[in-house]
Amino acid sequence: MSVPPSELPEGVVDRVRIAATLLGDIQYMTLATADESGRPWASTVWFCASLRSPSTERLDVELIWLSRPEAQHSANLLERPEVGISVFDSRQPADTGVGLQLAARAEQVPAEELEAALAAFSTASVAAGGNEWSLRQVQEPAPLRVYRAHLDRALLLVDGSRAELPLS
């Protein structure tokens, strides 16, 4: 059940807007995975945030990126789909700034959902001055695949303080 914005804890709507803006503005995320023995691996990947609903009360987003299945982070997802993600603008001055810390479950996008995920990624890529992407570029025998992360937890960091964001 949705809570009217007037009844949300102070600042929730503003924090969700800040997070959505950050996800739209920042193009790289740090993706932390672990292999079957728990050994961590961090990778920086270009991503897009696909908003699943325009809610200002909850962060309802899917993060999408392309990768090679044999890349360490992609291989790790086969054994452990749980990931940590950090999204931030590294040009911010020390002791200031805005960022997101996310816990999520990641996977290769299933075939039946591939077209929609790739369309979102391609649109964001073109808007950022990159390439348009087609299905033939992310299916066998092409080397890249489409991956996505569904958020389990989101923390917004603003000038040293953290606030949990409500998720859909």
Rank of each mutant, 00 (worst) to 15 (best):
41 W>C: 12
97 G>L: 00
101 Q>S: 12
94 A>N: 03
101 Q>H: 09
95 D>V: 06
43 S>M: 10
71 A>N: 15
29 M>Y: 05
32 A>N: 13
84 G>D: 13
135 L>C: 06
107 E>M: 12
115 E>I: 02
97 G>A: 03
69 P>G: 14
23 L>A: 07
117 A>I: 04
29 M>D: 09
139 Q>P: 08
52 R>H: 07
82 E>W: 07
127 A>N: 04
85 I>W: 04
74 S>V: 02
148 R>T: 11
66 L>R: 15
86 S>G: 09
51 L>S: 14
108 Q>K: 14
36 E>T: 13
20 A>D: 13
124 A>M: 08
110 P>E: 02
111 A>Q: 09
86 S>N: 09
70 E>P: 01
92 Q>W: 00
117 A>H: 09
73 H>E: 01
67 S>D: 05
26 I>F: 05
133 W>G: 01
143 P>N: 03
122 S>W: 04
148 R>G: 09
81 P>W: 12
118 L>P: 00
146 V>Q: 14
22 L>N: 06
89 D>H: 10
76 N>E: 08
127 A>C: 02
99 G>K: 10
109 V>T: 15
40 P>Y: 11
120 A>Y: 04
54 P>W: 11
55 S>K: 14
116 A>G: 11
41 W>Q: 14
22 L>P: 06
143 P>C: 04
44 T>V: 13
32 A>F: 11
87 V>Q: 04
68 R>H: 02
94 A>G: 06
19 A>I: 15
35 D>T: 11
22 L>K: 07
124 A>Q: 07
96 T>F: 01
103 A>V: 05
108 Q>R: 15
119 A>E: 13
74 S>H: 08
106 A>V: 14
32 A>C: 11
42 A>I: 10
68 R>Q: 06
136 R>I: 10
84 G>Q: 13
36 E>V: 12
21 T>V: 01
147 Y>P: 04
83 V>L: 02
99 G>F: 10
51 L>W: 15
119 A>F: 01
70 E>Y: 00
29 M>E: 10
